[in-house]
Design a protein around this nucleic acid. Sequence first.
DNA 1: ATGCCAGGTAACACCTGA
Length: 260
Amino acid sequence: MTSIKIATWNVNSVKARLPNVLAWLKEFAPDVVLLQETKCVDDAFPRLEIEDLGYNLALHGQKTYNGVAILSKSPLEDVVPGLPGSAEDDHARYIEATVFGKVRVVSLYLPNGNPIDTPKFAYKLSWMDRLKVQMEKALATDELTVFGGDYNVIPTDDDVYSPQAFANDALTQPQTRSRFRSMLHLGLTDALRAFNTQSHLYSYWDYQAGAWPKDNGILIDHILLSPQAADRLTGSGIDKGPRGQEKASDHTPVWCTLEI
DNA sequence: ATGCCAGGTAACACCTGA
C-alpha cells in the first residue's frame, strides 16, 4: 500500500504565484496537485521550475482567465481537457487524468455566477448540471475518482463568516446549493468533512477589508470522492499556511490522503 | 452594498473575481 496526498489550490495566476507555489510544493510535498485559475496559455506555464521538483504536468490553460492543471509525481495518463456537454463553452475550467496508474483525478474551476440576475448565473447552473453528468459517468465505472477544485459553492451557512453578507450571492443560492447536494447524493464523499466536522472552516479570504486577519472567510474549495476512493481515504484538511504568506493567493489548499 | 485588493491586458483605464 502507498499513501498519496492530493491537494487542490486556486492559485490566482500561476505566474504571479510561482515563488509561493514552489515553496509550498517543497514544504507540503503533495503527490498530486489540482490547480485552478492558472491564467496563462500552456506555452507560458512555468513548466521547467515545477518539473524540477519532480512533477509531471497536464495543462488546460487560456489567456487571462480560468485555466486548470494537474501536477503529479507519477506519470499522467489518459489526459482529457474540457468539460463535455456544450460546444460553445470555451472556458478552460476542467481537466482530468489518471495518476499512479489507478486514480482518476479532476481539476475543476466552477463558474462564479455573479451577479445572479445575469446570464453568468445561468451559465454556472448549467455548468453544474454538466459536471453532475460527468460524475454520474465516473460513478458508473468502478474507478477511484477524485473531483477536486474551486466549486464556487458555499455549501451551508456554517461555511461562511456572514451568511447575511452572501445572501444574494451566487455561491449561496438555493439553486447552487441544491445542485451541490445532488452531487453528494450521487454517492460522492466530501473528503474534508469526512475528518473535519466543525463549522467555519474556510479556504478563501478576500484580499479586501482585512478579511484574512479577521478570519472573514468562506469554504468554496472542495474534494469529492467516488465510493472506491472514499474507501481509501485516511485524512484531510486545509493548509492555511500559504494564505498567510507574502503575495498570497486569496485561496489556500485543501488536501486529502488516500491509501492506494 | 460596492469594488476598499489583486492580476491581466493593454496603455497610463478597464475587466474579472467571490
